[in-house]
Nucleic acid binder design. Structure first.
Length: 269
DNA sequence: CTGCTGAGC
DNA sequence: GCTCAGCAG
């Protein structure tokens, strides 16, 4: 074998190695993206993820989401609200930014301009007031949904504040929230961002004794009713959305918790 | 807390 | 088009 042949073989082997490594990296990245339903190690948190009906899960530092391109918004946003996250600092609100992590192109905030609807946070800015960085991260367009202002600043805001109250009382909660994305919804803007008719919020507490769960389903309109009037089973939201919210839970526990409409373990005071 | 809009550069 | 300041529930 000539030296030249040897060099050629080595070169080809090296090339193959590089290609294989790139292939491996791609597989690995792909695996993370479609790895729904697993406990995912985030930069700061570890939490249960629901399944994605769209195949596009994105992890930010402070929350994860599943983006629905047809509806131009997240079908769910999930994060852990730790007790130590609770803060009253009043950061200056940044401007909304098109989420660069959404490969299909997240909605432009201009769709909401003069639409008559709020850019309603799914993961509330108020849940991320422990640092300017975390706060700013909630101002991505993948984290908002068109919301009626009276609803957003009314009963929905009341629910968000109750979640913060529970996070303090129960040493943190996991939160999953989103609009119910159906066909033939009203849309706003050139990109046709869907306006949900209902919004849901699901909580699980695994830190204060026996694991407990609670779910809320609210019509997209303000209300003076007490919050507990909107409690539903997780199962009912799963059948509405097609999402499996806690696939990692032990099946028996999952069945028990997700079918329950009881809120007796959650303090509404 | 939840937000929007008008004025000015 | 971007940002500040002011206003509203």
């Amino acid at each position: 074998m000539t030296k030249r042949t040897t060099y050629s073989i080595v070169a080809i082997l090296l090339l193959c190695g590089v290609y294989y490594f790139e292939f491996y990296l791609e597989q690995k990245e792909q695996q993370v993206i479609v790895d729904s339903g697993k406990t995912v190690k985030n930069n700061t948190n570890e939490f249960f993820l629901p399944t994605s009906t769209t195949g596009q899960i994105i992890h930010h530092n402070g929350y994860s989401l599943s983006y629905s391109e047809p509806h131009e918004q997240a079908e769910w946003v999930a994060y852990e609200l730790k007790k130590e996250h609770l803060s009253n600092t009043n950061f200056k609100r940044p401007y909304f930014e098109i989420d660069p992590a959404v490969k299909t192109g997240a909605a432009d905030w201009r769709n909401y301009k003069k639409s008559g609807f709020d850019r309603g946070h799914l993961c509330p800015a108020g849940d991320k007031a422990y640092s300017q960085e975390a706060y700013n991260e909630t101002f991505l367009t993948s984290n908002i949904s068109p919301q009626n202002h009276e609803f957003n600043s009314g009963i929905w805001n009341t629910l968000e504040q109750k979640v913060r109250y529970w996070a303090g009382k129960y040493n943190g909660v996991f939160v999953i929230t989103g609009g119910v994305l159906e066909e033939n919804l009203r849309t706003i803007g050139d990109e046709r961002v869907s306006v949900p008719n209902q919004f849901y919020k699901i909580l699980i507490d695994t830190n204060s004794g026996k694991t407990k769960m609670i779910a809320f389903l609210m019509p997209h309109e303000n209300s003076n009713l007490p919050l507990y009037k909107f409690v539903v089973s997780v199962d009912s939201i799963e059948s509405l959305t097609g999402i499996d919210f806690f696939p990692e839970l032990d099946d028996a526990l999952e069945n028990e918790l997700e079918s329950s409409t009881s809120y007796k373990n959650w303090s509404f005071n």
